[in-house]
Design a binder for these strands. Sequence first.
DNA 1: GCACGCCCAATACCC
DNA 2: ACGGGTATTGGGCGTGCG
Length: 786
Amino acid sequence: MKINFWLLDIDREESEGKTIIRLWGITDKNERIVIYDKTFQPSFYLLIKNEWISTFLKKLEEEKENLKIKEILKEDKKFFGRKIEALKLIFNSFEDLIKCSEKLTNRIEVAECLENDLRPAFKYMIEKNVIPCCWHEVEVKEIDKKTVMVDKAYEAVSSPNLIEKKDIPNLKILSFSITCYSKVGFPNPTKDPIILISACTNFNDKKQFFVFNFNDKEVINDFSRFINEFNPDIIVGFNNNNFDWPYLIERAEINKIDLAITRNGVKPHKSLYGHVSIAGRANLDLLDFAKDIPEIKLETLEELAEFLKIEEFESKPLISNVSKYVETEDGKKLLIKNSLINAELILKCFKMLLEFFIQLSSVTGLPLDQVIAAPVGFRVDSYLIRQAYKLGELIPKRKEQPYQSYKGGMVLSPKPGLHKNIAVLDFASMYPNLMMLYNVSPDTLVSLNEPLNENVFPIPEVEHKFRKEPPGLYKIVFSNLLAERKKINAQLNQLSPESIEYKLLKERSKAIKIITNACYGYAGWVGARWYSKEVAESAAALGRKAIKEVINIASEEGLKVIYSDTDSVFIENLPEKIKKLQEKTLNKIGVEIKVDKIYKKIIFTEAKKKYAGLTQENTIDIVGMEAVRGDWANIAKIVQRKILEIMLIEEDLKKALDYLKSFIKKLRKEKFDLKDFILWKTLTKPVNEYEIKAPHIEAAKKLIQKGWRLTTGDKIGYVIIKGSGKLYEKAEPYELVNNIEDIDVEYYIFHQVIPAASRVLKVFGLSEKRLIDLASASSLIDFSSG
DNA sequence: GCACGCCCAATACCC
DNA sequence: ACGGGTATTGGGCGTGCG
């Protein structure tokens, strides 16, 4: 029989010396299914050194049985664009493959083992062109599903075929959040129980499991039972990969509970990219997504909801100490309520992101749960592997290699001051376009000692050259990516923006853009399979040449350049001249430069990468300045924003100064909220590895002492409290501050508010020293009069 | 003894 | 665990001054 299914998850099992691929999906009849594909043959490639090439095959045939090789084939492949003959070794199981490749890797006849580093489920998808989050048709026969939590189980008769069906099945989604109890500090799963779990589903369930007698056995059991009853396709949480699941798993172990919530009836396990994998379902962590969004600074669920513009979500009070709340009935009620708000909010956020996640998965070819957890570099890796395979290329290995830096984009010093009517022009996808034009790719790179001729592109400034033909991997990949986006944009014009097709295509376009823009950085990343310093360096050099050319053309046209950064120029908004500049640029460079934005007014300081502009819609863009930085106190950001607003709209210096003065006065007099003073900094390594003393590190140490478990990537929120000595001695984690009176307001005035205000005001001739004098004087006046 | 300049580590941002 | 370019802060240290 034939069935159509949408691929949700894929993994493998080893059974009787054979690797069997398991495809977990949903059919067009809305059934949850698993398909076992026993037709997959694990394989890897051997490249033989030239001198052994004629004799090695025979030798290997003799050892075939011993090495558990099922079959040996000669194949014509390509490796970095060069035609090459490779031996394909085929096995029954992946285990056999690994053992054999380990034995052969160091043989003198062997130049290289390839593709033995690709995981079977992944290799299967590549070979069979099976794509996650897409529909496939497959010939199957039904088998006993045993205890597997699906509607039906099948064995594949032949391999699945991708079909042109674009919709998404009716997925069952479960969101959840756990609350743990600890008497002091951060909960520790070896001793502190889970007291509360909330779960919501897109079928309108709102379930809560709790006990306040600190025996969490029942809570975990009930939750686990509920998961299996509802049988979700997707489980989603916030920080569930690093908190909820590890905690649940450890508590389950301590309570001797079998946390059998995967579709094949075992417990979740840590997988690739450090995420928690739940076989047959997709376990997703919204924190992974939040970390990819630069606008999201603190990486909290609330911030994510705000970013997604989720309206009227109930805000909950800051609960820093659960133990206090369990003491009273009201406290318990509040905990229960908050927990549900969390689970609901997670579900709401997820519903807005589902289509994007699905497209990211199908574009990159990584399973849904993996793609969300995977760093950008591995998403690109996966995409390139698929494309390279289609071209008959062998997949290079990730190699340990030394890091080499190279020269990047060009940044011009801005002309400080307030400018009016300024246009911002930038190249559309500069690096991808230049790399396509000059066929910049690892497989087209010409070696240094080869002479320059008409068949190669020389790259300015750097010594590299690239063959004009045939198109290299990056050129092919970029052409495909740009072509597909173009096609999508055309399709979008034909669709109603309210339709699901529109939403899906829009999100696909976004996913493609992300991959396109990541490729240049990927090429310069030592961890990349297709790493090439020469490629990245050449792209950067071409970029510098292109933008320099634009600047030249601007001066030819008599357009004053105010500022430029990498692929953009800020110039006077003179439409006729700009049009000319665009034409000349396209002619000379071959890449289009577009008017991205027009500012009615724009303020530049002396510094690069910092400015604030008044848009035509009368909104204010702030770039790089303190007001958009996560590591400045709210009070400083508020003041800077307001002063920018006054100077951009009214250009009233006196008003700005008066505002500053009154704000400082208010700061000294009134009670502000603790959160307005918090300074946030990220730990970039474990606390004990820091060799220096710094405020956020000292604050982190205090938290650790109180039982917090802090790791790399955690955000430390601290405030500066009154006292003497070094700043780091006055840094206190905000969680440990009980009295707002302890805040050292004077520090904030002189080290936060004034510097932030001064950044703007000094452009208008007000020195920081004057502001400091002003604040000091007003302090004296207030002191003497009050 | 300390103000000052200088260098460095650390961090966050821009494109 | 995608790149380089850049600004900025606070710690630490040496220097020169009084």
